[in-house]
């Protein structure tokens, strides 16, 4: 094999390995991004829902998706607006932390009840629990 052919083969090899290196870089990035999207997806899909007890069940306004943070209170900025005279503006919230759902009272004037017991600190929620604010009662359904 003469020297020109060898050099040509080497150039081909260099070009191919450069292209291969870059392609591998991009494929790693591509897979990482896909993974990131997949790991982010469950957070946006439905974890469960909350439903107001005693309300007309067919009405859509009385049912809310369970999100990593759900705020409850009388102010219009809350995810669930509680139209009760005994509800504070920012009354309580539901949080997803350490893979558990927590109910937290936000120093409301009249307190928050979990299954008719007043909560004193953050409390873990279970499927079917009932959250009470004033005369309003919300049942929580957590998808496993």
């Amino acid at each position: 094999m003469n020297i020109e052919t060898t050099i040509f083969i080497l150039r081909l090899l260099a070009g191919l390995s450069l292209a291969g290196f870059l392609l591998t870089l991009f494929s790693v990035i591509w897979r990482n991004l896909n993974q990131l999207e997949r790991s982010a997806a469950p957070a946006s899909s439905e974890h469960g829902y909350l439903i107001r007890e005693g309300a007309n069940q067919t009405s859509g306004a009385e049912r809310w998706a369970l999100r990593p943070i759900v705020t409850l209170g009388r102010a219009g900025s809350n995810a669930i607006v509680v139209n009760d005279d005994f509800a504070s503006a920012e009354h309580a919230r539901i949080l997803l932390e350490r893979e558990k759902w927590w109910l937290e009272d936000r120093q409301s004037r009249n307190g928050t009840r979990l299954n008719d017991d007043q909560i004193k600190r953050r409390t873990i929620l279970a499927d079917g629990d009932v959250i009470g604010i004033g005369s309003y009662r919300y049942r929580i359904h957590i998808h496993p």
């Binding site: 080497l10 150039r11 090899l13 260099a14 191919l16 390995s17 450069l18 291969g20 290196f21």
Partner: peptide, 9 residues
Amino acid sequence: LAFTFVFAG
């Protein structure tokens, strides 16, 4: 791949 590239050079 880095090896083949540097080797070719």
